[in-house]
Design a protein around this nucleic acid. Structure first.
Lengths: 243, 243
DNA sequence: CTGGTTATTCTCAAGTCGAGATTGACTCAG
DNA sequence: CTGAGTCAATCTCGACTTGAGAATAACCAG
């Protein structure tokens, strides 16, 4: 708490910088991708990193995350979902000074390729299971973000944030499979999605054609009004992670 | 990210202070209690608030949380569990300057009354469902902490962090009932706790007497080695929170 | 001893889940 | 145009899990 402020002048403390870093996820070609940028400045110049930057005096933390995402990638579409992930602030995580980073997790539907914006030499969507080395402790942040995303898909309808306005049950299943990295039983998934109240609602429409490799036209759905999935849609058993 | 640091001198930015605040929870007399302190300094002098304070240059964030908890309350027992909760940093949350607060959530077994330590005029355990007005945005932080605690009890064995080394199933049930604020079916709870692998393990002992109002001696258990409860132990349905 | 309290175990019906199979619409190669 | 293969959607079945209620027996207070 701030009790110290009256007694201590914070300006006499060693300076602390506060940044936001964003783990922006999307699905491309059935694989989970993360947005990374090539750093254009020291330290770690030329290395890959998560997009992010300093907070400004007049903006809140989430606002800073959205701004940094837009600035460094040139994407003008705000992500379909953004939430705070965690904060990282151990001494020594930045070689120059104490830096506390507040990370955000963003979900976006398949977006165009980003273009490098301010302070980034390049910006690309990269598959999460094959990311190059990242600067600072960004590999840890990314891992935490991916685990959070996997977990969120279990008990919230946020998978729809990766999809367009309307989608088929199979497209939704591909999102789950991509994020979880596990194949799912199509019939059981279909039954489950339709049985959870408020997860999706039918549009009355179907796709205009069958799939490119055959199969009937699929019904189209849009996101429902549920905020939580109940009962949850759980990942296939992860025995190893229980103990 | 830190790209700006090479171009911008962070010392030229308006100063930002980083604090940690702790939501420390325990169970007393079958009710969930939170540790609050009476502020001894401006601003909000005399108001109640969560314990917390500035991070120091040489400690990490979790270390700062543990230190603040000990310093302001005189409790020398580290909590059984502590985890990061969230960060709060909107402009204007502190009247004097930009303050980013990183909050931690701590679970402790029933501890002695705290004594006011540095910077606190008083420190007490207070029932969470009847807290006085708190300084800054600490009511929001407390609400987030309580919701996190309720949720954690569903899918982790952390309820045992509120109990002593050994405990009976009924004591464990009282913890769940206190945190969730809901009565639970004793027989079903008993069955569930024993059926989840690694939640608890028997000690072979029983209590020395029956309960003060009657009933047989209960078997004693200790925490098992599970990190996650599978299947989870869910709160009774919360229809209203789903939509 | 008596009545009330509590730990522990059972029963039973309803709901959920994983695995597999079926039906019929659709695409594509030949 | 036809046959093979793909896929959406539905159904079946057995194994489990859950909520509600009840039975049993150990133990306390008076």
């Amino acid at each position: 708490m701030e009790e110290f402020l009256a007694g201590y002048d914070p300006r006499r403390y060693p300076p602390v910088a506060v940044t936001v870093d964003v783990v922006a996820l999307t699905i491309r070609d059935r694989r989970l991708h993360v947005l990374i940028v090539e750093r254009g400045v020291e330290p770690y110049e030329g290395a890959w990193a998560l997009p992010g930057g300093f907070i400004r005096p007049d903006e809140d933390l989430a606002g800073a995350a959205v701004r940094e995402l837009a600035e460094e990638t040139g994407l003008d579409t705000a992500p379909a979902h953004i939430e705070q992930l965690a904060s990282y602030g151990g001494p020594g995580r930045d070689p120059r000074m104490r830096v506390v980073s507040i990370s955000y997790l963003a979900f976006a539907p398949d977006l165009p390729d980003p273009r490098a914006g301010t302070d980034a030499a390049a910006a690309v969507w990269h598959p999460v299971d094959d990311v190059p080395r990242l600067a600072f402790d960004h590999e840890r942040i990314l891992a935490d973000g991916v685990e959070r995303a996997r977990s969120k898909l279990e008990y919230t309808p946020l998978a729809t944030a990766f999809a367009g306005d309307t989608f088929t049950i199979s497209e939704l299943r591909l999102i789950y499979e991509s994020v979880w990295g596990t194949p799912l039983h199509a019939g059981n998934f279909h039954r489950k999605v339709l049985s959870v109240p408020g997860f999706v609602e039918g549009t009355g429409e179907t796709t205009q054609t069958g799939g490119s490799r055959g199969g009937p036209r699929a019904k189209l759905y849009r996101a429902g009004d549920a905020r939580l999935l109940h009962p949850a849609l759980l990942r296939p058993s992860r025995e190893d992670e229980i103990r």
